[in-house]
Simulated scan of single mutants.
Amino acid sequence: MRAFAPLLIRRALLRDIAALALGAVCPVSFAQHGGPGLVTPPVRLDDTWLVDQTGRKRLLNDLLRQGVTALQTVYTGCGTVCPMQGVLFGTVQDQLPAIRARHSVQLLSVGIDPLSDSPSALRAWLARYRAGPAWNAATPALSDVDRMRMALSGSKTPLGNIADHSTQVYCFDANAMLRWRSADLPRVNDLCDVLGALARA
């Protein structure tokens, strides 16, 4: 029986995530804003303009409404945790075709150093991890970076230097609502499970 315990826990987690996406689970079972876990109530970020890797200007919520989205914050000059985040999304990207879904699933890397994260730098960063068409990158204006980082994290206070930025992944449903915050550098399987549950809702 002991060998089945992890499987039962995993199934319970999947059931709860799917129920969240359908709005059917009691809110007290969710993580509150600021911590990892399911976000309740779901949050819509204030809209802001981003410039993507092609140089095109895009509204954040327009990007998020293109499908269920896993979003990470990175900066192209980072040599510590950002390469690990690139590998993480690269591995998740490989799993996307296996996710059965009503909604498309996409990955979005948001550059948080607008002075360096130019479209050409974002393109080079994506190319380094062999990003396909379902993985894009974009950067907000300098004046919007802190506000966006705080909204993603659920923090009410400034987050400090970008070198100490979060390695969480933020999952949005197809209506651009933030539904889940991961722990730092989440496991690929956990992230794929959440994306799959949201995509099937």
Rank of each mutant, 00 (worst) to 15 (best):
S104M: 02
S104H: 06
V105Y: 14
Q106I: 12
Q106H: 15
L107T: 04
L107D: 08
L107Y: 04
L107E: 09
L108G: 05
L108C: 06
L108Y: 06
S109E: 09
S109T: 07
S109L: 07
V110S: 01
V110P: 11
I112C: 02
I112L: 04
I112P: 13
P114S: 13
P114N: 13
P114A: 14
L115Q: 14
L115Y: 05
D117S: 11
D117P: 12
S118Y: 09
S120G: 06
S120M: 07
A121C: 03
A121M: 03
A121W: 09
L122R: 00
R123E: 15
A124C: 02
W125N: 04
A127R: 11
A127I: 06
A127Y: 00
R128A: 15
R128I: 04
Y129F: 15
Y129C: 01
R130A: 15
R130V: 10
R130Q: 15
R130W: 05
A131P: 02
A131R: 01
G132N: 03
G132R: 05
G132D: 07
G132S: 07
P133G: 14
P133T: 07
P133I: 03
A134S: 13
W135R: 04
N136I: 01
N136D: 09
A137K: 05
A137C: 04
A138K: 01
A138I: 09
A138M: 04
A138R: 01
T139N: 09
P140K: 00
A141H: 03
A141S: 13
A141R: 08
A141Q: 12
L142M: 14
L142P: 00
L142T: 15
L142Y: 13
S143D: 14
S143T: 14
D144I: 10
V145L: 13
D146M: 13
R147T: 15
R147H: 14
M148V: 09
R149C: 03
M150Q: 12
M150C: 11
